[in-house]
């Protein structure tokens, strides 16, 4: 069985097209599946939100989860669509451990004609000990299908 050429490839997408904010934060591809994508964010002193503890700010985690969940929608659909985040909620379950790489996993669990529903978690080594949980929606102005 041949793989259709239009299939969205997150690794290629992040290596080629995505400079900007993701590159600025040091985000990279980690893994993906049929409806999920994972990104990695190595520890970087430039991301610190609390100088005393060295813990990274909450913002970079939100950025990573926004991108990982966005790609999960394209993976579920099998191709790229223009869309924008409608809303995103992040629960910060615990501080990220200074020095550790944060892994963010986004999953698309439902797509309708114009709205995609996503959820995800971030951890720093043990997926059973998450540091953040997210839920949200994306909207495609031209429609997803």
């Amino acid at each position: 069985m041949s793989i259709p050429t239009f299939i969205f490839d997150p690794e290629r997408f992040l290596k080629s097209g995505a400079g900007g904010h993701g590159k600025h934060l040091g985000l990279s591809y980690h893994a993906h599946g049929p409806d999920w994508a994972e990104m990695a964010m190595p520890y970087d002193p430039r991301l610190v939100g609390d100088t005393d503890s060295g813990v990274i700010a909450s913002g970079p985690i939100l950025s990573m989860m926004d991108m990982a969940t966005s790609m999960s929608v394209w993976l579920k659909l099998g191709g790229f669509r223009a869309h924008a985040t409608l809303d995103l909620r992040v629960d910060y379950l615990r501080p990220a451990t200074p020095g550790r790489t944060v892994i963010g996993r986004g999953e698309c669990y439902r797509v309708t004609r114009s709205i995609a529903f996503i959820r995800g978690q971030a951890h720093d080594g043990d997926p059973a000990d998450p540091l953040a949980h997210v839920a949200g929606t994306f909207m495609a102005p031209e429609g997803y299908f």
Binding site: G22, A57, G59, L62, S63, D66
Partner: peptide
């Protein structure tokens, strides 16, 4: 602008 950067600005 990236939504994450806008969110980071609002959190700060």
């Amino acid at each position: 602008l990236h939504g994450g950067a806008i969110s980071g600005l609002m959190e700060m």
